[in-house]
Design a binder for these strands. Sequence first.
DNA 1: TTATTATTTTAGACAAATCTAAAAATTTTA
DNA 2: TAAAATTTTTAGATTTGTCTAAAATAATAA
Lengths: 217, 217
Amino acid sequence: MQSYTEENYLKVIYHLSEISNPVQTNAIAERIQTKAASVTDMIKKLSEKELVNYVKYQGVTLTEKGKLTAINIVRKHRLWEVFLVDKLNFKWDEVHEVAEELEHIQSSLLIERLDEFLEFPKVDPHGDPIPDQHGNFAELAFVKLSKLSPSEKGTITGVSEHSSAFLKHLEKLGLTLGKRIEVLEVIEFDGSVALDVEQQKINISREVAKHILISKY
Amino acid sequence: MQSYTEENYLKVIYHLSEISNPVQTNAIAERIQTKAASVTDMIKKLSEKELVNYVKYQGVTLTEKGKLTAINIVRKHRLWEVFLVDKLNFKWDEVHEVAEELEHIQSSLLIERLDEFLEFPKVDPHGDPIPDQHGNFAELAFVKLSKLSPSEKGTITGVSEHSSAFLKHLEKLGLTLGKRIEVLEVIEFDGSVALDVEQQKINISREVAKHILISKY
DNA sequence: TTATTATTTTAGACAAATCTAAAAATTTTA
DNA sequence: TAAAATTTTTAGATTTGTCTAAAATAATAA
Ligand SMILES: [Mn+2]
Ligand SMILES: [Mn+2]
Ligand SMILES: [Mn+2]
Ligand SMILES: [Mn+2]
């Protein structure tokens, strides 16, 4: 069994792996709000436990065992987020902190029953996919809004940034999950995007567009 | 804010206070499955934080602040137990361990919303009362089954022992919450009790009778 | 390709929570 | 009330996760 702290490290390494592999010590330190020296210590420990492959000065990758462990934590995190929003009426920008704690509760019976109670949701309130108990994700066809060209249409199905500031901003703009959008123009100067959302013309920065996930159909 | 460990100590001291006040070091050690020396260390720390009053060699009592903190943890524990039984179909002997973890989740919004979602339950699955957010308990008139005399009648409304072994034993005997019982005889030799439960005559030990709570009406 | 800069690791220290063994205080027994 | 038994505390060590400061390695620039 892993400690609360080890689990947080594994999850962070898992998420960072999607950006760069192997994952660098400093990247982990920044995410986990700690010092590089502490990360090195923990990496050695996880390596001992065969949860990561570690080469000095090169960085870490998750082993199969480490990856499964990480995905299981992600599963729990996202299921709890669904519970908070669907059953307890939390807003999508209020759930992250609490789920960060709930994801560490150790009971597979609990999580399977929760999954059932929520009627086996496929995505969390931010549109992120929820893996099944074997660690498999249902394939979802996403594309970043920042990758679309003028006249392309689609539906907002997720976000890749979960800060309250970002989510509140989206809400204010009316850019919530399920909304149909069409790209009207991509401004050359700063990469910002003009959109049509329900007959309204809206402008968003490239930074914002990069974190909105669109499914085209 | 208190650590996970400090919270567990406060809760144990709270429960033991109902039996003997002040609470002895050894009693805490036994409950928390640790050594007396560790308890002394923790007591000093809680005393520093003004959560307990501590006199060397005499034992501890909770301060008002400590008591409120403890009751709040009890509140969370019992609400989560209701959730597990009512919503996730756990059996009453399966919930304790999980609630022992869930009670430490730090979010007052979460717990108030959970209370609402569960429709403000007054008792947990073991018949224990759930305090409100100010730490007040609704008065419940309980008496231990071991205190009843022959021909007295009542309804099983709680238990004061939560081990799986005990709860399974009760279940096997058909002694579950809500059942009407009548005391037929109290055996002088060993204090064991003969009961009538739904036209069935049942014998239970004094030890078992002490942990069954009856409301008379 | 050497020097500079950035990244990572080591060394040594610290706080939290625990332990064992021994000393001190209290309670019980005789 | 003095001796014995029990309970509690202290002293010192250990484990986990963290830190700062300094050394080692790798990447980048001149
Ligand atoms: Mn977490
Ligand atoms: Mn999410
Ligand atoms: Mn607990
Ligand atoms: Mn209970």
